[in-house]
Computed example of a mutant assay.
Amino acid sequence: MEHKISEKVIKELIYNAISRSFSYNEYRVLLDQLVLKSGTTGVEQSQMYIDYTKLNQQRMKRLDKTIKLSEDVKIRIGEIPYKMIWLVLTESWCGDAAQTIPVIHKLALLNENIFLKIIQRDEHLELMDCFLTKGSRSIPKLLAIDPISNTVLWTWGPRPSEAALLAEEYKKEHGELTPHFKEILQVWYNTDKGKNTVVDLMKLLSLE
């Protein structure tokens, strides 16, 4: 956690966020509605972000149909005996979110003890600022929460571990993440097909 804020306040922020959250299906409906009216979520309402939202809606629709999980993953996730809320901070324009939230959703569906909730980052900046990535409000950010105590068990994001390493190495060489890197990253996501996200989460769940 980056900000010096009391655990009590964080729990209150989490409680309030969950009460205002979307289910995955509600979030997908929101994206469909945004595309119909040429809109986007978040503070920045630029044409670029509107275009990203449209692209992400198409990607998520495709991934909902094509993501495949192994039988081993299905069995091990299905055997988790305790309840968790997976609270994801995101925005409709976020490319990494479009590639990974459908995977997170597929995993959550495997066990009735896992409740996936989605919130918009820019409407919950105080909570976001408790879980920065190297000082940045990077999304998506997944918080695994004990629903009884509202304690954060672990966090994940904003990218799968291999993609994060790819970004880190590119930045070291080029000084910044250029538009060309986005092309490289998209090729990586297309090749990976959600596998690295699954591996990351299995490790955090102590199932790997």
Rank of each mutant, 00 (worst) to 15 (best):
E2K: 13
K4V: 13
S6V: 05
V9M: 09
V9I: 15
K11P: 14
I14Y: 09
I14F: 10
N16Y: 03
A17I: 10
S19A: 15
R20E: 15
S21P: 05
S21G: 02
E26N: 09
Y27I: 03
R28H: 12
V29L: 13
V29Y: 08
L31T: 01
Q33R: 15
L34F: 06
V35K: 01
L36N: 14
S38G: 05
S38H: 14
G42N: 00
V43L: 11
V43P: 00
E44H: 14
E44P: 02
Q45T: 13
Q47A: 08
Y49P: 01
D51E: 14
Y52L: 07
Y52W: 10
K54H: 12
L55V: 05
Q58L: 15
R59M: 06
M60L: 04
L63N: 11
K65G: 00
I67L: 03
I67P: 08
I75Q: 14
G78V: 10
E79T: 13
Y82I: 12
M84V: 05
I85E: 04
W86C: 07
L87V: 04
T90R: 01
T90K: 00
C94V: 06
G95S: 00
G95V: 00
G95I: 00
G95R: 01
A98F: 00
T100I: 03
I101M: 07
I101V: 12
V103N: 03
V103S: 01
L109A: 07
L110G: 03
N111H: 04
I118A: 00
R121M: 12
E123F: 12
M128H: 01
C130E: 07
G135D: 04
G135W: 02
R137G: 01
R137Y: 05
S138K: 00
S138P: 02
L142V: 02
I145S: 13
I148H: 13
S149L: 11
N150V: 10
V152Y: 09
W154S: 07
W156F: 15
W156T: 13
G157F: 00
P160Y: 07
A163I: 09
L165M: 12
A167D: 04
E168I: 03
K171E: 13
K172D: 09
E173G: 06
H174T: 06
H174F: 11
E176I: 06
E176R: 06
T178S: 14
H180A: 11
K182G: 03
I184Y: 05
Y189M: 10
D192Y: 13
K193M: 12
K193S: 07
K193V: 10
G194F: 08
G194E: 05
K195M: 09
N196G: 11
N196C: 15
T197A: 14
V198S: 08
V199A: 14
V199G: 05
M202P: 08
S206G: 11
